[in-house]
Amino acid sequence: MMISTTALRVAACRGRLRWWSELPLIAVVYTLYSGARLLVRGEVSDAVRHGADILHDEQLVHLDPERWFNRLFANHAFLGVPADFAYASLHYIVTPATLVWLWRRHPVHYRRARTWLTISTLIGLVGFTVLPTAPPRLLNGGHGFIDTMALYSSFGWWGSDASAPRGMGHLTNQYAAMPSLHVGWSLWCGILLFRHGRHWPVRTLGVIYPIATTLIVLGTANHYLMDAAVGILVMGFGFALAGPALRAVDVLSIRLGRAGKPGPASPASTAGAVR
């Protein structure tokens, strides 16, 4: 009985990738993301200035829809409350769920997708470090934004400190708006769901999720349109670097494997062993 090439590739992938090695790797990346985001707070005055500059630049080219969406969400609780719940939770649910789905259903594509996400996240951390940025909701009142997370905090577990649980605002960095990894990660999920989903509901979710996330981050005044655009750009860089990074890792693994194997025994040593 002949075995298909795809089946052999799946078996090879499952042989190389084990959940007990993947989980710690993902945990390390997530810890780096959370820790670096917390530690690299930057100067508040610089972050506020950067946020105001971004808004000013958007206004110059008439691409500043944040206020309109923010007023819509602030004036209509039936939009604002679900948006706040989505902002505070889906980022941390859908992304790992997509990873697990790939692992279980499409293991051939899992390794590249995981590497793509990892590299993009690390690039995002560089952005948080280099350009600390206050989100629209933390600009002064003259800019006209309403913090919907604070406005509707009685409906959820968050307080006035973004999506952090009440009393834990000191454990998050609110000045890491640029780039928007909410948008970046949702785009990653959407592309994978659309590309590898076998049923139309999964593929439809792949289209809707990144679009909805973009509208949510704008309407809740947690990101600027430019943050979303740079988040998409970051994912593009991560995708471009994933292939070369995997090839480099594979080459290094092969070389290390060869270096660790004992070489063939010399005739003299073999003769000595016989005697």
Rank of each mutant, 00 (worst) to 15 (best):
W116H: 14
P82A: 00
R71P: 02
R67P: 06
A77V: 06
A113H: 08
T98W: 07
A77E: 14
F73L: 15
Y87L: 13
L125V: 13
A74V: 08
A77Y: 00
W101P: 10
D84C: 14
G127R: 01
R111H: 08
L125Y: 03
R67M: 03
R112N: 06
T121Q: 07
H91M: 04
Y87Q: 13
F69E: 03
Y92P: 05
L72T: 11
V100T: 10
S89Q: 11
P82H: 02
I93W: 11
A88F: 04
L125R: 06
P82F: 01
V130A: 10
I123W: 01
Y92F: 10
G124F: 01
L79F: 02
P107N: 00
R111Q: 10
L99Y: 14
N70A: 04
L117R: 01
W68Y: 04
T121I: 07
A86I: 15
G127V: 02
I93Q: 12
W101Q: 02
L102T: 03
L122T: 14
L125D: 02
P96E: 07
Y92A: 05
Y92T: 05
V108W: 00
R104P: 06
H109K: 10
I119A: 13
R105Y: 11
F78V: 10
V126T: 15
L122H: 13
R71H: 14
T118M: 03
G127N: 02
L90N: 14
L125G: 13
L99A: 15
H76E: 06
L79M: 09
L117Q: 13
L79G: 12
F78Y: 10
H106T: 06
R104Y: 09
W68D: 13
N75R: 05
V81S: 12
A83R: 04
Y87V: 07
Y87G: 15
L117D: 13
G124I: 03
W101D: 04
L102K: 03
T98V: 15
T115M: 12
I123E: 04
S89T: 15
A88R: 00
W101K: 04
I123N: 14
L79D: 14
W116N: 11
T95K: 02
T121P: 00
H109F: 05
V126I: 15
A88H: 01
W68R: 03
R67C: 03
P82Q: 00
F78L: 07
A97D: 07
R111M: 05
L122S: 13
P107S: 00
A97N: 06
L102N: 05
F85A: 06
L117K: 01
T95E: 11
V94F: 07
P96W: 06
P107K: 00
A113Q: 12
F73H: 09
W68T: 11
S120Y: 06
A77T: 08
R71V: 12
R112M: 04
F73Y: 13
A86T: 14
T121W: 03
W116A: 08
V94Y: 05
I93R: 08
Y92D: 08
A74W: 02
A88K: 00
R71N: 09
I123T: 12
G80I: 10
L72R: 04
W116M: 09
Y110H: 12
V100F: 11
S89C: 09
F85E: 08
S89N: 15
P82I: 01
F78M: 07
V108A: 05
S120C: 06
A83H: 08
R71Q: 12
Y110K: 04
